[in-house]
Design a protein around this nucleic acid. Structure first.
Lengths: 202, 202
DNA sequence: TTTCCTACTGTACCGAAGTACGGTAGGCGA
DNA sequence: TCGCCTACCGTACTTCGGTACAGTAGGAAA
């Protein structure tokens, strides 16, 4: 597959031309072939979307690998989410670049070992917190108790809850007491922590 | 690179042998060559870790692609996190499997287009929520106030906080009052919502 | 040296939260 | 019909949270 290297930095283009003699190089604004593997090295600080989206619009059939001199997780995510097929350190060794090309040409995505590791770990840790947020607490509660629980969880006072549901403050207290008992909370604050899925340390 | 297909399902092994005549097939318990590309199709419902970890322990140099008849995001994440190089639908077309092999052999990771898309979207959406949790509230607070704020946020009573920091309950109240004033909260529950980054509706 | 900020403490007070007793009324299955 | 659950309400009480109005002590900057 034809490969094309794009950058605004003339010096970088020269060094790439040297490293990959059979590579086409050009500006980010160059004419694009309909089908190619495009390497793009935008200036540092450019957000990936502003580079990836126009390129994909101009050459929808092409594969795009975004290069970065200071690769980081967020940028990689943004690039791939915008439609890039790969994200790679601009100073990577030629063999690594070859591998990236192979992977991408075969329909894979390339973000490098280190970044993939970090991406995986953050995602799994984020997902681990999510299920805790899950609404297990609803299981043993009646409909009314769930109403009151949600109100307490967002910080409402008994008086406010009473007004909201058109019942007396006394009845609110009744429900709150039941909630504390059922969910094993000491007071409404711990109740709100449970409802909101905030991890407990105690 | 030598490829090896592992499963406990005899029928599946036969169909694979048919589709890939030059492929070695075996049980999950088979002897493993030191260096190979291993395809493993564990029985449905098996957690990826229990398959991946032992395999990687027995053949650390090998590349492992986990197959699943009912692929889903969580399982893919678990598999890759455990050290698999790929995760793929067990019913995927031979060409797709070939691509996966190419990608993995070149040091890439393979989880398929659809799964990658979903993984990216969930990760970005999760990361988008994170910054809201960001600790803006620390800005205007003194060191002691931050201590007390964190304690309040996890549900500690004034008495407990006093014990924790070796100060009187009175002083805790002093700090809490300052916190409520500075962060614009009505009571300690709303304070905890702010600290914990729970979105406010009021 | 004066001034300001931070950290800390004391007494007194009020209101909210939560508990402990009680009670009524309706629905639902045995 | 009898229990059981749910939702609701009342009074009295204790505890906790929070405020008001005080004060002391140390450090840092003017």
């Amino acid at each position: 597959m034809q490969q094309l290297f794009l950058s605004v930095d003339a010096q970088r283009r020269d060094s790439w031309r040297e490293a990959f003699p059979d590579l086409n190089v050009g500006f980010l604004e160059s004419h694009l072939p309909p089908t190619a593997l495009i390497w793009a090295l935008p200036p540092a600080g450019t957000s990936p979307e502003t580079v990836v989206s126009p390129l994909r619009a101009r050459a929808p059939e092409s594969l795009l690998i975004l290069l970065s001199d200071e690769p980081d997780e967020d940028e990689a995510l943004a690039a791939l989410a915008a439609g890039a097929a790969g994200y790679c350190n601009g100073h990577a060794a030629p063999t690594v670049l070859q591998q990236a090309a192979t992977v991408v040409e075969n329909g894979g995505m390339w973000i490098g070992q280190a970044l993939m590791k970090r991406l995986l770990s953050t995602t799994t840790s984020l997902l681990k917190q999510r299920p805790a947020t899950n609404e297990v607490w609803r299981d043993t509660l009646t409909a009314r108790e769930q109403d009151v629980a949600l109100a307490v969880a967002r910080g409402a006072s008994n008086k406010e809850i009473a007004r909201q549901f058109n019942i007396t403050e006394r009845t609110v207290k009744f429900h709150v007491s039941a909630l504390l008992e059922k969910l094993g909370a000491r007071d409404r604050l711990q109740l709100s922590l449970i409802i909101n899925g905030v991890p407990r340390l105690t």
